[in-house]
Design a binder for these strands. Structure first.
Lengths: 246, 246
DNA sequence: ACCTGAACACCGTTCAAGT
DNA sequence: ACCTGAACACCGTTCAAGT
């Protein structure tokens, strides 16, 4: 989209490519691609720019990676696979879940630029199975089993995963000044008058959310809910009212 | 990516464009674009294909929409704006939240093909403010206020929003047969042996999740957690240990 | 085996020229 | 005001030819 029409490359030089010292390698391609994405964003990455950055012909990188899709796959796989889980062996089950998923979230956020890539979606179900399993183990030790266990661990996993998607989305969103005024106007028009005060109260916060705190709070909510479920699970047949001892 | 090299268009005909009956309009462009996306997916949409489907020159559609970005903006805005909230005025506060967010989720899922679009991320913060406000009102009536209210309503909003992102991601994921065997092998290698049984137990379910049920369950967890918070909020100064009645 | 040069089909966007 | 024809700069991919 929105292509610049400046061609600031024809600057008198005739040799465009930087001279190469070594043979081209797949690893070098992946590394430079990551650097370019980090600098100019994912959508600015093209095989041709990548090739010229590598000092090489487009066909040369096509020889090493079969297609652009395959390149993206390699990038994502390099970022997501072969991660070591934190030990998280001490503390209450809730603390262990908190530690596990806090780690999980930061790992995902490290490759936030790749999140909306088809390659990311493809690798995801397998890349973090370990996290799902570790969470399940914690919940099982806490006392859940059967369908409750499956549901709870799935809810946890989805919560973090989904949260990161949302975060990656929000961090790509443009600041309110660049966003078309029309959109905001439409939203305001749609508001019922009695909601307007609530709206202006919300707006400044909406644009500047402490996402770390929000994540912790939201996860805590979920954990409190699970705790209730656990209480039920631990006392299967007793119908006496629940009671907390400090 | 992965461009087909067949050119099945040069079929002997010389006139490629269908004859036009009317003047071109912005609405017609948007409509046909939506149809094309629905049929062939978002990434297959190009202004040139769109133009030829409209029976018109690429420059013609460029005259009506300034750029491809603007076209996507229009698509998203058409899908997300001007939605009527459900009344959800009866039942407990939890039920009302459930109804509101169930509606919210289905609305979002209706445009799941646009979810990973920059345009979607741009419009989102404003498009569904009403939902955020409605949820906040429900929670306020339930008894929350101040920072607790802000946190709780935000956690709810993010939960649904994020869930849909996750769903849209999962529904784009390819079936396990097309996914490269390498990925799965890597995942299996990374597993510790004691996790393997847990893994094979999880795998079939992971590929076929009842997302509706999962959403309900996950939302219920969150609501149970909020309920605990509410109980605390309703009995502000008492420091006696918490006690559940029934 | 690895890379170049050149080509192909496609893309978004612009712009003078027609009506 | 609305649209065409033609061009421009860019893209991913292929392929014969070189080394």
């Amino acid at each position: 989209m929105s292509r610049e029409r400046t061609s600031l490359r024809a600057k008198g030089r005739k040799s465009e490519r930087a001279p190469r010292h070594q043979r081209l390698s797949r690893d070098e391609i992946v590394g430079v691609a990551l650097r370019l994405i980090d600098r100019h964003g994912l959508e600015a990455l093209s095989l041709r720019k990548l090739a010229s950055e590598l000092g090489v012909t487009p066909a040369a990188v096509s020889w090493h990676v079969r297609s652009k899709d395959e390149l993206l796959d390699a990038l994502v796989r390099g970022a997501l696979m072969d991660l070591d889980l934190p030990p998280c062996a001490n503390g209450s089950w809730a603390d262990r879940v908190r530690e596990l998923h806090g780690w999980f979230r930061t790992k995902l956020l490290e490759s936030r630029k790749l999140v909306f890539t088809p390659a990311f979606r493809k690798v995801l179900p397998y890349a973090f199975m370990e996290v799902g399993i570790a969470g399940k183990n914690i919940l099982r030790e806490a006392g859940l089993q059967g369908a409750d266990l499956v549901n709870a661990s799935r809810a946890l996993y989805w919560h973090t995963m989904a949260f990161v998607f949302q975060e990656a989305s929000a961090s790509h969103a443009p600041p309110p000044t660049t966003t078309p005024k029309l959109v905001l106007d439409g939203a305001i028009d749609a508001l019922r008058p009695e909601d307007f005060s609530s709206f202006v109260e919300t707006l400044p916060q909406a644009l500047d959310v402490d996402r770390d705190a929000l994540f912790r709070h939201s996860l805590d909510c979920l954990l409190r809910g699970l705790e209730k479920e656990l209480e039920r699970a631990r006392r299967p047949r007793r119908t006496s009212p629940a009671r907390d001892h400090s």
